[in-house]
């Protein structure tokens, strides 16, 4: 079965989760206690020194975008379910600086008609990500200047690349097979109970199997609203795109990708130390919102323990 790789999302996701291109959730006025993330969790809140957590993903591929950006339905008799369990930790190393580590475990179940290959399930450890974040200005600290943070990260190809996959339908592919260096600029500001975030992320990758993936740029815009009980809701839209890969200096045809994802998240702080997050995400199956990528819909659930 020929299908665009779903690892495009995974390559970015680890950095998003850890580096905290996130919506601080407790944004009532000036980010009461600087908010846990309602979208991506592994970001220390204002007073936190350390946290550990796990995020569970379950996604269903609902279609794909072809090279021209047309939204396509899945072929009859085919399906793909993607699961991921991330373990992460973050620690404050400076008053305004934090580092984080994420270890993903990825499973894929693909099904095609029996005569073509049947159903297969595989998985394993994914690409481990380490990241750092420095907040020059916190959201809400200034009436006039938004919060400004710089982020940097590295994703290590500890997963199994599609080229290394040995199981049918490459269900044991769990990584992109290249080192990835990420940098990001995040801006965010509070307006009463509202928080707005805009983030740009650039990822460059090392050569893999004779080809070099193009830099990937992701733009993310998000808004969050904090309720009086400190729970928060957030809506975000991300648009990730990368140009054509090159092989021996020549452009690889039909290798450019782009993907739009809409996420709705909710955060509930159980105590000062424990918080839960849940979310829905969707790659809208509408033409021109992606290209050369599968379109998926899924759920996330996160549990975090922090120490202040």
């Amino acid at each position: 079965m020929s299908r665009p790789s779903s690892k495009f999302r995974s390559a970015l996701g680890a950095f998003l989760v850890l580096a905290g291109t996130t919506i601080p959730a407790r944004v009532r006025a000036q980010a009461c206690c600087a908010g846990g993330s309602a979208i991506t969790p592994a970001r220390l809140e204002l007073h936190e020194d350390f946290l550990v957590g796990t995020e569970l993903h379950a996604g269903d591929v609902i279609g794909s975008y072809d090279v021209g950006g047309n939204s396509l339905r899945l072929p009859a008799g085919t399906s793909e379910l993607d699961f991921e369990e991330d373990l992460f930790a973050a620690a404050r190393v400076l008053r305004r600086g934090q580092v984080a580590l994420l270890v993903p475990f990825i499973e894929t179940r693909r099904s095609v008609p029996p005569l073509v290959g049947g159903t297969h399930l595989g998985g394993g450890i994914g690409d481990i990500n380490a990241s750092a974040r420095y907040d020059f200005v916190g959201a809400g600290e200034s009436l006039y200047v938004p919060g400004i943070a710089l982020l940097a990260g590295v994703t290590v190809p500890t997963g199994t690349s599609p080229e290394q996959a040995t199981q049918p339908l490459a269900v044991d592919a769990t990584g992109i097979g290249a080192w990835q260096i990420n940098g990001a600029l995040a801006l965010e500001q509070t307006f009463g109970p509202w928080l707005l975030n805009a983030t740009g992320i650039l990822a460059v990758r090392t050569p893999r199997y004779g080809e070099l993936l193009a830099p990937q740029l992701t733009l993310l815009a998000a808004g969050a609203y904090t309720l009086p009980n400190d729970a928060a809701l957030a809506l975000s839209v991300s648009y990730a795109f990368e140009g054509s890969a090159t092989s021996n200096g020549a452009s690889v045809a039909d290798s450019a990708k782009r993907l739009t994802t809409v996420s709705l998240s909710a955060l509930y702080p159980v105590t000062d130390a424990w918080r839960l997050l849940g979310g829905l995400y969707l790659d809208p199956p509408l033409s021109q919102l992606g290209s050369n990528q599968p379109a998926a819909a899924g759920l996330t659930f996160t549990v975090i323990r922090s120490w202040s």
Partner: peptide, 9 residues
């Protein structure tokens, strides 16, 4: 102190 950041500027 575990309160909100003061918006001082």
């Amino acid at each position: 102190a575990l309160g909100c950041a003061l918006q001082k500027w």
